[in-house]
Computed example of a mutant assay.
Amino acid sequence: MNALLFAGALLLHSSLQAATINCTIDGTGSAPRVAFGSASECVATGSGGSYVLTAKKEPRFVQVSCWRDGPGGDAARCMAAVARNSANKKEFRIGTFQEPGGSVVQAAWFSVTFIN
């Protein structure tokens, strides 16, 4: 019985892992580039803190975080806002801001986790 439970838990864990996509995008240059993860899974365009990210498959859930380079190479505060395109559920508009509650977008690194 324990072996059956272990096999079931292992199968569930591997199916969750297969359905999770992680990408880290460097949005600080003239064009965003995928620094970690698969460039075919996460296609990013835009610049200066305003980006469009297109997933390969329509995800059920998405989580985004961001960070910027601060003085002395330390990470500086950053806030990410995400909006899904209602016509194309694989596309997301991402804005990165210097301060939480700020209104001016600023270039930043951002990480995205899609769960399909």
Rank of each mutant, 00 (worst) to 15 (best):
M1C: 12
A3W: 15
L5S: 07
A9F: 11
L10D: 14
S15A: 11
A18C: 09
A18V: 09
N22V: 06
N22R: 07
C23G: 04
C23L: 01
T24S: 04
I25S: 02
A31V: 08
A31E: 11
R33Y: 15
R33L: 12
R33S: 13
V34H: 02
V34K: 01
F36R: 06
S38W: 14
S40C: 10
S40N: 11
S40P: 07
E41D: 13
C42I: 05
T45C: 05
G46F: 08
G46V: 10
S47F: 12
S47L: 05
S47Q: 05
G48Y: 10
S50N: 15
S50P: 06
V52E: 12
L53W: 08
L53P: 00
T54P: 00
T54S: 02
T54W: 07
A55L: 01
P59S: 04
R60F: 13
R60K: 13
F61W: 14
F61K: 04
V62P: 01
V64L: 06
S65Q: 10
S65R: 07
C66E: 01
C66D: 02
R68Y: 04
G70W: 15
G72N: 12
D74K: 13
D74C: 06
A75D: 13
A75T: 09
C78H: 01
C78E: 05
A80Q: 02
A80D: 01
A83V: 09
A83S: 10
R84M: 08
A87V: 06
N88E: 11
N88I: 01
N88T: 04
K89S: 07
K89I: 08
K90C: 05
K90N: 06
E91C: 03
R93F: 14
F97A: 00
Q98V: 12
Q98W: 10
Q98A: 10
G102D: 10
S103E: 15
S103T: 15
V104M: 13
V104Q: 14
V105P: 00
Q106T: 07
Q106Y: 03
Q106H: 05
W109E: 03
S111E: 10
S111M: 11
V112W: 03
V112T: 02
T113S: 12
I115N: 13
I115Y: 15
